[in-house]
Every structure is written in C-alpha cells, then in structure tokens.
C-alpha cells in the first residue's frame, strides 16, 4: 500500500487519468453545446469513431498528423451534418437518428478502414508528440503531468474555458441557451431555431471528432474497429453529471478518467480485485447523480423536442 503514496506512482496515475479523460472531455463539451441548443447528441459515439477514422486515414495518406486531424474533424463534421439533416431538418426523433448514425459509423468505418488501411492496420502511424512548456513543466509532479503534453491536450485546456465563456458570457451563447430552454421565445426574438441548432450540432460533432483524433494521433497510433468503445456514451454520462455545464462536464470527465485509470492499473497489479466493478463506476456515479439531483438539476427544457413554428 505504501506504493500508493509514492510520488512517481502519483505522477503516473494522474498522467494516465488525464490521457484517458482527454477524448471524453472533447466529446462531452461537444455534447453540452448540442444539448444546450435542445438537441440530444447520442451520435457522439459515432463522431468519435469518425474522427478517429478520419485521423488515421488522413495521416496514413499524407504522413502528417495535422492533415489527419483536419480529415478527422471533417469526417466528424459530416456526421454532424447528417444528424442535423435528420433531427433538425426532417424532425425525426433525435435519439433514433443518433442511434442510426452510430450503427452506420461502426459499420462504415470498419469496412472502409479495411479497404483503405488494409493490412497496414498493425503498423503505427506518426502522431503528435509531447511538447514541454518551458518553466511550467519543471514544477514537481504536476508539471510533467499537465504541461508536458501534446498539442491536442493544450487545445483541450483552451476549449473548456472557451466553451464556458461562449455559453455564459456572449450573446451567441445566450441565444443557444434560449433555444434549448424556450425556443418559442427565441424565435419571436428573431433567432433562427433550425439554423442555430444545425450549427451547434455540427460543431458538437467536430469537437467529438477531435476527441477521436486524439485516440489515434496521441494514444495508440493505429485505428482499430469500434475503437470508440462506448466513450461517446461516457461523455453523455459526464455531461449529465456535470449538469450541462462545460466546466462541470470537464470535472466529471476527469473523475471518470481517474476511475478508468484505477481500473486499468488494478487489472495489471492486483488481478484478484474485480476490475469490472471499477469500470462500472462512471455509469453508477452518473445514475446516482441523476437520481439524487433529480428535481434540483434539470436538462434544457426543450431538449429532444423538434421545434415547429406555431406549434404548442
């Protein structure tokens, strides 16, 4: 047990917690944005997968991880366009549309990955490497954990406060929140509900796509079939636990990342402790949070409902 208090152990543990959190943070921030505008984005899972697939293909074809990142964001953005067309344009049930997209993305990325990446699926791709921020990286323990990271992690440090600032401190953010809570009022004020929702859904998917690209370009350097493995759903759980607030969602993701890191460590160090019980922690915590906070915390009022002008 004294190993737990070892500084090196703590640094390793925090580092892996952060690495495991980054993809779900991007997805959860994206999810907050879409849900604040009143659209359930169940397809976060598919967007992560699309982002990972695009990143792998782009990097494989050009050799540059930046091109890969761009292609990953593009693929995820197209998923967003598809969701917006189905859920906002045609007005079909947002959850059904999202589930359909997830199924499509699992099949499509597996199939196309075998076609494009072929037998090379095992050879690793070039990715992003850690850049130490001068000064900050030399702080003991926390320094290397937080400030010796790759470019996508630094991007995450920017995205979290930026999304909070956008939602709560800008007129656009106010519009988004108004549309999610009471679209009739927003519409009377002259804001186009379908337009704002479409933009939010697309940006939301692009953010999740960055999370997917992180998996490929900063973590494992290969694309594997269905590598998102439920991360989109964990992100959904995180944004609920974070009460539809970007900062709250960020903290929830860090908590989930820690329980995931603990679970992985237990699998290796103490096989007699059932690791599945720790894999369950994020889901149990979210469920408990939902039950205990129900009544006090509520999702955006108009979430999941299609907006019809003049409707009730």
């Amino acid at each position: 047990m004294e190993q737990l208090f070892d500084a090196q152990f703590m640094a390793d543990f925090l580092g892996s917690s952060l690495r495991l959190s980054v993809p779900i943070i991007f997805a959860a921030i994206g999810g907050v944005l879409a849900e604040r505008s009143g659209v359930f984005n169940i397809s976060l899972e598919g967007c992560i997968l699309g982002g990972a697939f695009g990143a792998a293909v782009g990097t494989y074809l050009t050799g540059s991880p930046f091109c890969g990142l761009m292609l990953g964001i593009t693929v995820a953005g197209s998923v967003g366009i598809m969701l917006a067309m189905l859920a906002v344009g045609l007005g079909i049930n947002q959850l059904v549309a999202g589930i359909a997209i997830n199924l499509l993305m699992v099949g499509l990325t597996s199939y196309l990955a075998r076609l494009i990446l072929g037998g090379d699926a095992t050879s690793t791709l070039p990715g992003f490497h850690p850049i130490a921020l001068p000064g900050l990286a030399s702080i003991p323990i926390i320094g290397p954990v937080l400030f010796q990271q790759d470019i996508l992690t630094y991007l995450m440090y920017l995205v979290v406060p930026a999304s909070w600032w956008f939602l709560y401190r800008t007129p656009w953010g106010l519009n988004v929140r108004a549309i999610g809570d009471y679209p009739v009022a927003a519409d009377s004020a002259g804001i186009s509900v379908p337009f704002v929702r479409t933009v939010c859904v697309i940006v939301s998917c692009m953010l999740a796509g960055v999370g997917g690209a992180y998996l490929v370009l900063s973590q494992v350097f290969v694309f594997t079939e269905h590598m998102s493995a439920g991360k989109g759903f964990i992100a959904l759980a995180a944004l609920i636990l974070g009460r539809w607030n970007p900062v709250g969602a960020f903290l929830a993701c860090i908590f989930f990342g820690m329980s995931d890191a603990l679970q992985l460590r237990l699998q290796f160090t103490s096989p007699d402790v059932p690791y599945q019980l720790f894999s369950m922690v994020p889901f149990l915590a979210s469920l408990l949070a939902l039950v205990l906070l129900s009544g006090k915390v509520r999702p955006p009022a108009a979430i999941g409902k299609k907006y019809v002008r003049g409707g009730k």
């Binding site: 189905l86 045609l90 079909i92 997209i101 993305m105 099949g107 499509l108």
Partner: peptide, 22 residues
C-alpha cells in the same frame, strides 16, 4: 467481400427507415 459492409448497410437501413417515417 468484407462482412463489415453489412454493418454499414444495416446502419443505412435504419437511417433511411427512420427518415422515411418523417
């Protein structure tokens, strides 16, 4: 032919069916 293509086609089926109900 890779059997994964069927997963993709199934995804298309549900998207088209869902859209058709609109």
């Amino acid at each position: 032919l890779e059997s994964t293509v069927i997963e993709a086609i199934l995804g298309l089926v549900i998207i088209f069916v869902a859209a058709s109900l609109a």
